[in-house]
Design a protein around this nucleic acid. Structure first.
Length: 433
RNA sequence: UGGGGUGUAGCUCAACUGGCAGAGCGCCUGGCUGUUAACCAGGAGGUUGAAGGUUCGAGCCCUUCCGCCCCAGCCA
């Protein structure tokens, strides 16, 4: 192919009248007797490329009119303003090279079932809805780092391979590790607590593994979680950080992903309402509310998905539910001095039925009470020796939380299942591709 | 693990009460100069998830197994 200025599709409107080159993949081809339309995607956008038989000659016509779905091509043509073309511009083809042929592409621009699409996840990524949700995910992860950088946090990368330590046993993936058993991390929190006295405000962001045999639209066995931890912050400050953080993520998505949210047909009005402060309701108040709405929940048991949805419906913002019964929560959460039946913690429930996106707490900083809780839960005390050291050498009030990325992106994009919101989901029955 | 559903062409789905296995899309052939998931005509394409049973006859009924989806639990 002769030399032509190589451009990205998103920049084509600025090149009107110029002859430019693009590289991309054929999404669809519509051939008439003497004119053909090929829609080409390059990753930055899509453009309709037009071949007129009378203009391009027999050889190019033959090549262009036999393009198949997802053939990779290099196209050279004139950028033309054209109201009949989607996007208002098209490329009038002068030259076209097939770079990589594509025979019988499995995914049609029609409906498919979930299993078929997941079996072809490596190709499904090219589809417009998948591109949009994964673009939003990428922007959200960027917004996460932006927020914590600007707030003065230091990023701490916590290990993925760990010894036996975490929230509880029985939900960990294990693997052989030079004759020992290693476990895949289900939280970075305990390591962050160790980094806290070194840096004050820290966070980690990475994959998390849960060997639960969960089969719901809200669960993955491998998911990404961002976890901040703040020295000298109590539960109250923790919730204020959470609402500022979530507001930042939503605002970032509205600013930078308007096109994607439109493509996804997401009603952005509920998102535009998101601002601090978020409504708060104590666990005890939540139980009273639920019982007044006909639920038979007993004080002491954890809230289920239906309970969360019922609470979310009372508000049009994310809502904090705080201070749960201690038997429903993890050993490291600090006892509530005003009501020792409960611990200083909170969940954040997203609106519109998307459920829990954050779990957070103030941590137990008293050595004796923490030790008592470890023994109460019958956890292996030896494994927690280094964690207990943090209470022996300059213990301090501190709090933190974990926000699930896929659930947050599900809410922001309005998608119903988290499996679409990570490029290659790992589920109980899905390890490939 | 428990409850509910489902499995038919490459894909998405029909098939009445148990009675000749079908459509749309995709693919192949031909037609068409402005399509927008193009349209029109023709063609190829099936071990009805697997095994067994009932019946003159099973995609449909029965038994067992397998896959998938939804809900619950666990949590983010």
């Amino acid at each position: 192919m002769t030399e032509a200025k190589r451009v990205e599709v998103k920049d084509l409107p600025e090149q009107e009248g110029e002859v430019v080159g693009i590289g991309g993949w054929v999404e669809t081809l519509r051939v008439h007797g003497k004119v053909a339309f090929a829609v080409v995607r390059d990753g930055t956008g899509v453009v309709q490329c037009v071949l007129a038989r009378d203009e391009v000659g027999d050889e190019l016509w033959a090549r262009g009119s036999e393009l198949t779905q997802e053939t990779s091509v290099a196209v050279r043509g004139e950028v033309t303003r054209e109201p009949r073309s989607p996007g208002g511009f098209e490329l009038r083809v002068v030259e076209l090279d097939v770079l990589g042929a594509s025979e019988a592409y499995p995914i049609q621009p029609k409906e498919h079932g979930v299993e078929f699409l997941m079996d072809h996840r490596h190709l499904w990524l090219r589809s417009s809805v998948q591109r949009s949700v994964l673009r939003v995910r990428a922007e959200i992860t960027h917004a996460i780092h932006d927020f914590f950088y600007r707030e003065g946090f230091t990023r701490i990368d916590t290990p993925i391979l760990t010894g036996s330590i975490g929230e509880s046993a029985g939900t960990l993936f294990s693997t052989e590790y030079f004759g020992e058993t290693a476990y895949l991390a289900q939280t970075g929190q305990l390591y962050l607590e160790a980094a806290c006295p070194a840096f004050g405000k820290v966070y980690c962001f990475g994959p998390t593994f849960r060997a639960e045999k969960s089969k719901t639209r809200r669960h993955l066995t491998e998911f990404w979680m961002v976890e901040p931890e703040v020295a000298f912050a109590d539960s109250e400050e923790n919730m204020r950080l959470q609402e500022r953080f979530v507001t930042h993520l939503v605002g970032w998505a509205l600013d930078r992903c308007a096109g994607e949210l439109e493509e996804l047909e997401r009603d952005t009005l509920p998102l535009e309402k998101v601002r601090v402060p978020f409504p708060r309701i104590s666990y005890t108040e939540a139980v009273e509310l639920l019982r007044s709405r006909g639920s038979e929940i007993e004080w002491g048991s954890d809230l289920g998905g239906a309970d969360e949805t019922m609470i979310a419906e009372e508000f049009d913002l994310p809502v904090f539910v705080y201070n749960y019964p201690r038997q429903a929560k993890a050993f490291y959460m600090k006892e509530n001095p005003d009501d020792p039946r409960t611990v200083l913690c909170n969940d954040l429930i997203a609106p519109e039925g998307y459920g829990e996106i954050i779990g957070g707490s103030q941590r137990e900083d008293d050595l004796d009470r923490l030790l008592a809780r470890i023994r109460e839960e019958k956890l292996p005390e030896e494994a927690y020796e280094w964690y207990l050291d943090l209470r022996r050498y300059g213990t301090f009030v501190h709090s933190g939380f974990g926000l699930g990325i896929e659930r947050t992106v599900a809410w922001i994009t309005g998608r119903s299942h988290v499996r679409e919101l990570i490029p290659f989901p790992r589920l109980m029955n899905r390890l490939t591709p």
